[in-house]
Computed example of a mutant assay.
Amino acid sequence: MPVNTEQLREHRSGSRAWGLVLALVLLAFACLVSLWVGAKGIPFTATWDLLWHDNGSSEAAIIQDLRIPRTLLGLLAGAALGLGGALMQALTRNPLADPGLLGVNMGASAAVVIAIGFFGLSSLTGYLWFALAGAAGAAVLVYVLGTAGRGSATPERLVLAGAAITAVVFAFVQAVLLLNPLTFNQFRFWDVGSLASRRMDVVTQVAPFVVIGVVLALSQARALNALALGDQAGKALGAHVGRTRVLVAVAVTLLCGAATAAAGPITFVGLAVPHAVRLLVGPDQRWVLPYSMILAPILLIGSDILGRVIGGAEEVEVGIVTAIVGAPVFVLLCRSRKLARL
């Protein structure tokens, strides 16, 4: 009996759509657990009530001032890192690519070191804008170097330029930290990657960058599908190669710059999640991007919850937990015979 390809395509599309709905339900559940679980035990019914009614109690202050901003930041940062990782892997056609390849993380780190060591800033809100500017500046410099000379900004040239800029900036950061112990003491709390102690003003500052980055990223899904076949084939299919690479680079900078500025460098989320997504839905970027945007915050918020549970009163920072959890998962994905190709 012949297979109806149109029906098969519709069935796969329906399955992916339902999978996306299930992922959204899991994300909502993770957010609720994040609001409920913490060092101070608050019954779930009381937590739910305090979400909508601030009665002025200490429990209400914990929910409203600490756990809600923390959960929202986990949602934003996770979505940004997952989407940024998927974009980087599609842009460079490199399955091992992550947002750090454009120098975003290291640029943000250098700017934070400058803000602390040379301007004496001590609060997260004080050096948040420095981190955003540093991430953007590093990405622009990488793109300029990648397009210098003859030829266009090929994936290989962007990767090489990103590696060179990252090495130079890393040396600068280490030199400043070694010469200034006070800067190191303050910088290390940001550098480990954390969602704790972030207030709502941090969330409102980074949210517009993440929203703009998400819109840009999702708008380039079809063009990235075309470029996956190569530049020449992409042009033949109507994709504007140069414009697509610029818009994707801007989206990665906005997404990962905002996430890194607010939560610090968090590893493996942007690297491992897109791999898992391609195993689930295939290489079509129209599905890879939204799935990565939803599954990554589940991983990040889940790791944050795990850090609270295993650490007790002394929490384990989420950047440490994602590295411990993400590294083995990523190794298993890489060893799988069904490792999804870009």
Rank of each mutant, 00 (worst) to 15 (best):
L121R: 01
G103E: 03
L299D: 04
D65I: 01
R16P: 00
Q285I: 11
I42F: 04
A86W: 07
S58H: 11
W36H: 04
A30F: 10
F118N: 05
S292N: 05
A148F: 13
T166N: 15
V250P: 00
A133I: 13
N94C: 01
P2Q: 14
L224W: 03
A296T: 08
L8P: 00
T204N: 14
G126C: 06
F189M: 11
V202T: 14
R198K: 14
A164S: 14
A86N: 07
A163S: 13
A251T: 01
V202F: 08
S13N: 13
V210W: 01
A28Q: 03
R243N: 00
I310Y: 06
R93F: 05
D49V: 02
I320C: 00
D304V: 07
R157F: 03
A135C: 07
A263C: 13
A175W: 14
E6L: 11
G230H: 02
V202L: 10
L195T: 04
I42R: 04
L81R: 07
L141T: 11
L132H: 03
V192M: 12
A167Y: 03
R70W: 12
V241N: 07
V3G: 08
R188Q: 15
L87I: 06
H11V: 13
K338F: 12
I298K: 00
H53P: 03
I63V: 14
G257L: 04
S336H: 11
A221K: 06
A323G: 13
V215Y: 10
S197D: 14
I305K: 08
L255E: 01
M106C: 04
A17Y: 11
G282D: 10
L121D: 01
L237G: 08
L73R: 03
F118V: 13
I165N: 05
G213E: 05
L66M: 15
H275I: 07
L27Y: 08
A17M: 12
L102P: 02
A327D: 08
N180A: 11
G84E: 12
L306T: 12
G162S: 02
D231Q: 12
L27V: 07
F209V: 01
V281S: 05
A80K: 10
G100D: 09
V246Q: 05
L160R: 00
G120H: 08
L299A: 14
A90H: 05
G238Y: 14
G103N: 05
A261E: 00
V33Y: 09
A261V: 00
L271C: 05
A61M: 11
T5R: 15
L237A: 09
R198T: 01
V33L: 15
T147E: 10
I68Q: 09
L279A: 15
L132F: 07
T267Q: 13
M88I: 07
I305D: 10
I68R: 11
I324L: 15
A61H: 08
A249L: 02
L280V: 12
F172I: 12
L75M: 13
E315T: 15
R198H: 04
A167T: 09
L141G: 05
A239I: 06
L91T: 07
V316F: 13
N105M: 09
A111F: 01
A340I: 03
G326K: 08
V281N: 02
